[in-house]
Simulated scan of single mutants.
Amino acid sequence: MPNPKIENAFTYHQPKEGQPEKYEALRSKAKELACLIDELCPDSREKSLAMTKLEEASMWANASVARN
């Protein structure tokens, strides 16, 4: 019997009504923070990590909307 969590994690989730607007709102705020980080933080490993983690947070937030 397939594991439902694996099935959910590795299945395409077609957007439902209202979801595209949620994705855009999340991406917009993440982009706003990315721009602030880029403006205020000196180029460094730490800045790169902050940007990477912000991308990850944005992707996981959108995955939450898609999967649930």
Rank of each mutant, 00 (worst) to 15 (best):
T11V: 10
P2F: 07
A57G: 11
K5C: 15
A57L: 11
E24V: 08
V65M: 02
K29E: 15
K47A: 09
A66S: 00
D38V: 00
K5Q: 15
L54V: 01
Q14H: 08
L33Q: 01
S28H: 09
N62V: 06
L40K: 12
P4N: 03
L36I: 03
L26F: 06
A25S: 10
Y23W: 11
W60F: 11
E21A: 15
E39M: 02
E56F: 10
Y23R: 05
L26R: 02
K16C: 08
P15R: 08
L49P: 02
L49K: 12
K16P: 05
A63H: 01
A25W: 10
K22V: 04
E39K: 06
Q14V: 02
S44K: 07
S48H: 13
Q19W: 06
K31F: 02
L49D: 13
S64P: 01
L26Q: 04
M59H: 08
K53H: 11
P4Y: 01
E24S: 13
P15L: 09
A25Y: 08
A57N: 06
N62K: 08
P2Q: 11
M1I: 15
N8T: 10
S44D: 12
W60Q: 11
S48E: 15
A34T: 03
A50G: 02
R67E: 04
A34N: 04
P42K: 12
D38W: 00
A63D: 02
T52A: 14
W60S: 09
M59E: 12
P42N: 10
K5D: 15
E39T: 05
P15N: 11
K53P: 01
E17I: 14
P4D: 04
K31P: 00
H13W: 04
C35A: 09
A34S: 12
S28Y: 06
A25V: 09
W60M: 12
S48A: 15
A57S: 12
N3T: 11
D43G: 10
N3S: 13
A57V: 04
N68Y: 07
S48P: 04
F10V: 12
L33C: 00
E55Q: 08
N8R: 13
K29N: 14
E56A: 12
A30N: 06
K53Y: 09
A63N: 03
A61V: 00
F10P: 01
D38G: 02
E55R: 07
G18L: 11
C41S: 09
A30L: 03
E21M: 07
C41F: 09
R27I: 03
A30P: 03
P15D: 11
E24W: 04
H13C: 02
I6D: 05
K22C: 05
K16M: 14
H13T: 02
